[in-house]
Design a protein around this nucleic acid. Structure first.
Lengths: 250, 250
DNA sequence: CTTGTAGAGACGTCTAGATGACTTAGGTCA
DNA sequence: TGACCTAAGTCATCTAGACGTCTCTACAAG
């Protein structure tokens, strides 16, 4: 264990945070539980408040996650999410050997407004199906998405209950959607989205607004607003012929 | 002042944070100084630690900024959306020439390491030219970029002094670079980047890692890491035939 | 007029202790 | 067997106090 140096210009908590980073990197795996706070405080010879200040830092960095009543867990590192014509999140993730999971959080019939109406090319107030889904790798959530659907895609999505939305639309109605445009921004998450993603509200999300059109008819039938955990996802925009990369730390 | 309710399921610090948000919104302006921590703690009848926990929240939201030895200051609001009209990738804006301004901050000859070497397809330690540039619309900075160049592009960039890098490479050496892949992440900015962008360190930046290859020869000759102000920039990824949108608030 | 220093005021860090809330495991009881 | 309950373990919050570091101002010294 590195020696802590007081009055060195570097706060004790910062030194502890660095020591913990190294330790996690060297000898811990995803979803491992860290030692309890009192134990770590004793090991470093500091007050529990000081130790918590160090762990606060790791939480803010997205390296670990606190779970009330259970402990502090090491989080998985990022993965690359490609943006291109095909937007089959579930199938792509499954192909990379991970266990993609899509959960339907909410379904509602609403009237299209503003940006939704404009992007779907429908009138203000026109009926639109809204789905809210949570996407994750096993138990680790990566993204929450609001889907706004119209036309045949909306009709087909009424029987959607979870899993791959792409597959459901294809099997239920023979519809294939292609990504037409993506707008990417970043921001700090809304409380409800931070909760669903089980992430700190201080860590930014990537916000991707995607317009998807039916391949056969060319009509825009889905507008999706996804919030990706910025610390776990890299979006990849690749030209054909160049493979998307593996996640990299820098 | 709102009454604080203990044991209500909402932490005291959260209630104080909300009270401060309202107060800032109603009666404070940009760059106003907040009352000092001991004074606020006394006003709310809580310990200074609890008060600080509340202010931590506002700092994380980018609403205020602490200055050691001076106080806590209210930050500018309001220019979050709809600032940049053209939000395509940097070279497109620079190529359009309009109000885009590119300033050369730094130039250095370095040895390629890790991700830089891998993406440029050169050996570890191979000589690479590194440029650091600041891009802005008039006086308003919106991105800071690290360029890593090799081959003919590096040779041509040795005489670059500012302005459009794309144009310089074309006019000095007849080189045209095409974007091959972009990796997009988000994070909180490094202190040096926040300084250059004149933004708070609590607001996220969009980090775009771009691999650019020479159109004529197909060789990768530039790797660029750009940090865009997340609150001023939307990235657009569009299929041919669909025009990029104007920035939208939702 | 310039320089230097002391002090006040502000945020930053650390310690110490107490209590509350949540989760899990294991035992009790029907 | 199954439901319930209790206890232990863990993170969350709050209080109290002390000292460090940084910035600015005022005033004294040169």
């Amino acid at each position: 264990m590195p020696q802590l140096v007081r009055a060195s210009g570097v706060a004790i908590w910062a030194q502890i945070a660095q020591a913990l980073r190294v330790e996690i990197e060297r000898s811990m795996d995803e979803s491992d539980w860290m030692p309890a706070e009192p134990e770590l405080a004793a090991r470093f010879g500091v007050n529990r408040h000081t130790l918590r200040r160090a762990v606060d830092e790791l939480v803010a960095e997205g390296l670990v996650e606190r779970v009330h009543g259970r402990g502090t867990r090491v989080l998985a590192r990022g993965l690359v999410y490609g943006i291109g014509r095909d937007t089959r999140f579930t199938e792509r993730l499954a192909a990379s050997g991970r266990t993609a999971r899509v959960t339907l959080l909410d379904r509602a019939e609403i009237g299209a407004e503003g940006g939704v109406a404009r992007r779907l090319r429908v009138a203000e107030g026109a009926p639109v199906l809204r789905l809210r889904t949570l996407r994750g790798d096993g138990d680790v959530p990566y993204a929450v998405t609001l889907h706004f659907l119209t036309g045949a895609a909306a009709a087909a999505a009424r029987t959607y209950e979870g899993g791959s939305l792409t597959r459901h639309l294809r099997e239920a109605a023979g519809i294939t959607l292609d990504r037409v445009e993506s707008l990417i921004t970043t921001r700090l998450p809304l409380p409800e989205d931070a909760l669903a993603l089980r992430m700190p509200r201080t860590q930014p999300v990537l916000r991707v607004k995607g317009v998807n059109a039916c391949r056969a008819c060319g009509l825009v039938q889905e507008y999706a607003i996804s919030q990706f955990r910025g610390d776990r996802i890299q979006l990849s925009v690749a030209e054909p012929g160049f493979a998307a990369e593996e996640p990299q730390p820098d």
